[in-house]
Design a protein around this nucleic acid. Structure first.
Lengths: 368, 368
DNA sequence: GTGAAAGCGCTAACAT
DNA sequence: ATGTTAGCGCTTTCAC
């Protein structure tokens, strides 16, 4: 255990300089004469001196500490963000305070209070609930916030989000472009089809392209956005978005997916593709489809969302929408640091949107 | 943004008390007269006062901050530990500084320096390398250490580990107890067998119980321990541990497992069970066995290690050895806090060992 | 039960 | 380029 009981004074004495020069050597080495600097550094080494950040924080009123406030660190989505955050923070000499709120608003608030007590420079938050009043409440405790995986309402603050609408569109566009069967089982050419057919006529004649969306509650913004993207893909292909068949599950889990998969397998006409709004669901759906006698991808393609580890390593590697989670974390740090650097008044709130992309694997392959 | 520019002085003035009483109200409320306490609390509320921990840290020389130093937060093993750590820390009013070292010893050391500058109360470390000199080096920067997933060499410090020898034994004992075929394909009774047969005779007559260990480099302590446990299970069953067949892989990944699985499937006599020292490997082995025409679990049982999410949700849910990762994290926090509380001299180093347990799923089921 | 006062180690404004 | 100095806000004796 090093002795922390020595301060600048001792170092200054040994180096034959003043307090201030020690401080400058550490914080603004370029303004110190090289020879002096050497002597100070030598003294620091000699004494095993470790500067006391608490004193600096007290003096400056702010700490090189960033709060990372997330609901669950064991969830791979958040732990991937955490990785990006820790990397970027370390590069800038910031420490990350890991605050896990476990879906408990009170705990989340207590974490904010601790961050405020530590005089944290700011906080990166994947908020439980992002309504304006809640955010205002969090802001009151004093840290600057950057919202993650959420868009800050209208210039109320900074945020980084992933474009889930686009993600949904990518997924369903892929299903539309690669399907090998029509909704009724008859082969059709892949690519965009069924242009200029009057809606009513088309509806009556066919049940659409045979794509099913398996989604969670659309009250969840991510679910709503991915659904919107799915519908956009239909529109872009000249199809009627109402022909997108939808199955809603209560929980976005493997088990719920399996049950949904069985239901889907039992439907006529047989679907050509299923888009699940997360990977757990997709894994379950594949099993459920198999239970119902449908082979993936031979008879039905399945696309997931999120690109979790389990997506790649399952029995049928999953085609899925990869979200740039690391980058989300890195960008959040950069936004926060930029905000800190900016003139208080001059600062414009930033909201960045990152684009997901499709990772094609066996569960929904490219046409052979 | 709350004003942090007010201190005890302002609160004290408003409440009509002294500085010290404000401090006492916050830190030792029981020694303050209820009426006074109320007034102070009201003043705090009124002023939106947020105490400054940096000042307290400066004064006390120590911060209610715990460093969590791990190689990778996106690795589910470590993120599960992190969850336990954050929970336990929050319960005790400590903040967790997340330090991810990405297998870079220099970065790891820099993290320790930052923790020392913050006057962290201590650090919980899953060390990259745990040789004595490295640990001494880390200790030099001043934080008290608790080693995680590693046993501290001989009273040099505290540690929490998981009993991997026992874990390996559980896995192989299960394979031995449930196997339905002999190594040569002839049915055998399950349970302990082949007692009192002279070694040489037995060797010549049979190639053992047909159990294969798929392991990483035994230079990794965890791999060595799990292997030792596997051999112990043989001994406990009255078998010759040298009859445990071993396959070593370079990387403990799904892909490496698959290749190993193919090799194993090609062997004669056909194995009855495979123990893989992690779950990724096990998933790959199942695929490799399938590639080679062997069905799991119908023809071969497979047991993994670690109980990752992907173990439960794969096509064939994996029987695996569950490690109490959350508890590992919680216990690490408790050991650290106990060490802090103890009299400097009076403190005896603690090393706790947690027991894993077997989770039986389809890949190696109980006998029907 | 409460108050007065002395720092903890650092930064930054100012002086040289 | 370097030195002097006044706090930052809190904890903690020691008196009362």
């Amino acid at each position: 255990m090093a002795k922390h009981d020595i301060g600048f004074a001792a170092v200054a004495r040994l180096a034959g300089v003043s307090n201030a020069t020690v401080s400058n050597t550490l914080n603004r080495p370029e303004i110190v004469a090289p020879a002096t600097r050497e002597r100070v550094l030598a003294a620091i080494e000699e004494l095993d001196f470790v500067p006391n950040r608490a004193a600096a924080t007290l003096r400056q009123g702010t700490n090189r500490l960033i709060g990372l406030v997330i609901p669950d660190i064991a969830n791979p989505f958040y732990s991937a963000i955490a990785r990006g955050v820790t990397e970027a923070a370390a590069e800038h000499g910031y420490t990350v305070a890991l605050c896990v709120s476990h879906d408990d608003p009170d705990l989340e608030l207590r974490h904010f209070e601790m961050l405020a007590e530590h005089r944290a420079a700011g906080a990166l938050v994947a908020p439980l609930t992002a309504d304006a009043s809640r955010l205002a409440q969090l802001r009151r405790v004093g840290s600057r916030l950057v919202l993650m995986d959420r868009t800050a309402p209208e210039g109320t603050g900074c945020s980084v989000a992933i474009d889930d609408v686009h993600g949904g569109e990518l997924a369903v566009a892929h299903l539309l472009a690669t399907r090998r069967h029509g909704g009724d089982g008859t082969p059709q050419p892949s690519g965009h089809v069924v242009h200029d057919v009057p809606r009513t006529a088309k509806r009556a004649a066919t049940p659409g392209p045979g794509i099913v969306l398996v989604n969670g509650d659309v009250a969840i913004p991510q679910c709503a956005d991915r659904r919107e993207g799915a519908r956009n893909a239909f529109i872009a292909a000249g199809l009627d978005p109402d022909d997108l068949r939808e199955v809603t599950v209560d929980e976005m889990t493997v088990d719920a997916g399996r049950i949904a998969g069985r239901r889907i397998a039992a439907r006529t006409p047989r679907p050509t593709g299923v888009f699940c709004t997360n990977d757990q669901l997709a894994l379950g759906v594949i099993r459920g489809l198999n239970d119902g006698g449908l082979a993936v991808p031979d008879e039905v393609s399945v696309v997931g969302y999120g690109d979790l580890a389990l997506a790649a390593d399952g029995r049928v590697p999953l085609t899925t929408v990869e979200q740039p989670k690391d980058e989300l974390g890195r960008v959040a740090v950069e936004i926060l640091l930029a905000e800190l650097g900016a003139d208080r008044a001059a600062h414009e709130h930033v909201t960045r949107t990152l684009e997901p992309h499709l990772v094609v694997r066996e569960s929904a392959p490219l046409p052979a």
